[in-house]
Amino acid sequence: MLTIEGLTKRYPTGDLALDNVSLTVPKGQVMALIGPSGAGKSTLIRCVNRLVEPSSGRIVLGETELTRLGDLALRRARRRMGMIFQEYALIERLTVMENVLSGRLGYVGFWRSWFRRFPLADIEEAFRLLHRVGLDHMVDKRADALSGGQRQRVGIVRALMQNPELLLVDEPTASLDPKTSRQIMRLIVELAKERGLSAIINIHDVLLAQQFAERIVGLRAGRIVFDGAPDEMTPEVLTRIYGEEDWSKTIRRDEDDESEDGGPAAATDALKVVAAQ
């Protein structure tokens, strides 16, 4: 559904963030993108919705070649891609409801949005989604009054309000504690499944990636160095992605943490394989 071909991004400073990346994400697939800081994960998802302009390469969403669109067509295309951010990126001084409705900005004219006269259907959908993520009682709270987990839920609902086909998720759990991180990841994956959405999730935490994603792509210095199922992750693979480190110990400690949480069997099995080596 999303096809990236030969995507390269060189920043004006000369840094090569992405080097000839090609990738296909089928409809409904939840893909984790892992890699060290500065590997180009954020740049990659920002190139997809062109918050960052790619230097070269082709990105195709469904039938639309995103890399060729003019301003207006790009705005229309962005409606089909919901984005979720590391630091939530909510409009702090607006209420939860306003933040959620901002997901509809691409569909509503300027003056309607200025006077907050959103269509009834949008408001009903907002209430429904807020109920789904358990934030019914927070509708009129200002975004800066919420906890980290609650803010990220609002961020998720905002993205879903766009009625997207694809979710671009940038480090959704980097600012959250381990328990909330798992809840947020579970929520994102569940909602993606319910709606048949594809998702690209940038994530630092290898274990979370293994636990929740169907496919893992490893990025290092702007190149794809691994592309496979979560149970194919081995210390060798991690070394290839992140560089030399004693991975078995890291994973063993994480495994204890995981067993309390009761992660899916596949992920736990993968860990045992990793730990055994």
Binding site: N49, L51, R75, R76, A77, R78, R79, M81, G82, M83, F85, E87, A89, L90, I91, E92, L94, S102, G103, R104, L105, G106, Y107, F110, S113, W114, G155, R158, Q162, L168
Partner: peptide
């Protein structure tokens, strides 16, 4: 904070909406 602006742009909002909301 530029990420709030980024978030509004990512929804497909127009330039005027980015100004008014972000």
């Amino acid at each position: 904070d530029p990420t709030q602006v980024e978030a509004i742009r990512a929804t497909g909002a127009s330039g005027a909406q980015v100004l008014a909301w972000g």
